[in-house]
Design a protein around this nucleic acid. Structure first.
Length: 104
DNA sequence: GGCGTGACTTATA
DNA sequence: ATATAAGCCACGC
């Protein structure tokens, strides 16, 4: 049972390649702008890492959390770069350029 | 159902 | 810009 989780998973799975979405964005698209924490929890559970690219989900700063190392902080960057996403010297993603608006 | 915690976000100091 | 505080929802005990 995971009404909220299923929503979140569905949204995260819908994130197109080459784009990233913030927790708040996913939460909002999921139907609730307050699910930011739940989104993190849902990704933490990550029951389908092959269908749920948690690495495409970052904070509103386009940054990742210090504990986000689901396999290595560098892993996330590598995966995003593999999608064609560029990183700033701050190690952040250009949300204005790669920030997924959910429009497709 | 209550308590504590969390891969978040916003507001205040 | 860093540090606190509050809010939201879900999970585990």
């Amino acid at each position: 049972m995971a009404n909220s989780f299923d929503r979140i998973y569905a949204v995260v799975k819908k994130i197109p390649r080459g784009t990233v979405a913030s927790y708040g964005q996913v939460a909002l698209l999921a139907g609730n702008p307050r699910w930011a924490r739940v989104v993190g929890y849902a990704l933490h559970a990550n029951p389908d890492p092959e269908g749920i690219p948690c690495y495409r989900v970052v904070t509103k700063d386009g940054r990742t959390s210090p504990a986000f190392a689901f396999g290595g902080a560098d892993i996330q960057r590598a995966l995003l770069e593999a999608d064609g996403i560029e990183f700033t010297e701050d190690g952040r993603v250009d949300m204005a350029k790669y920030g997924w608006t959910g429009l497709g």
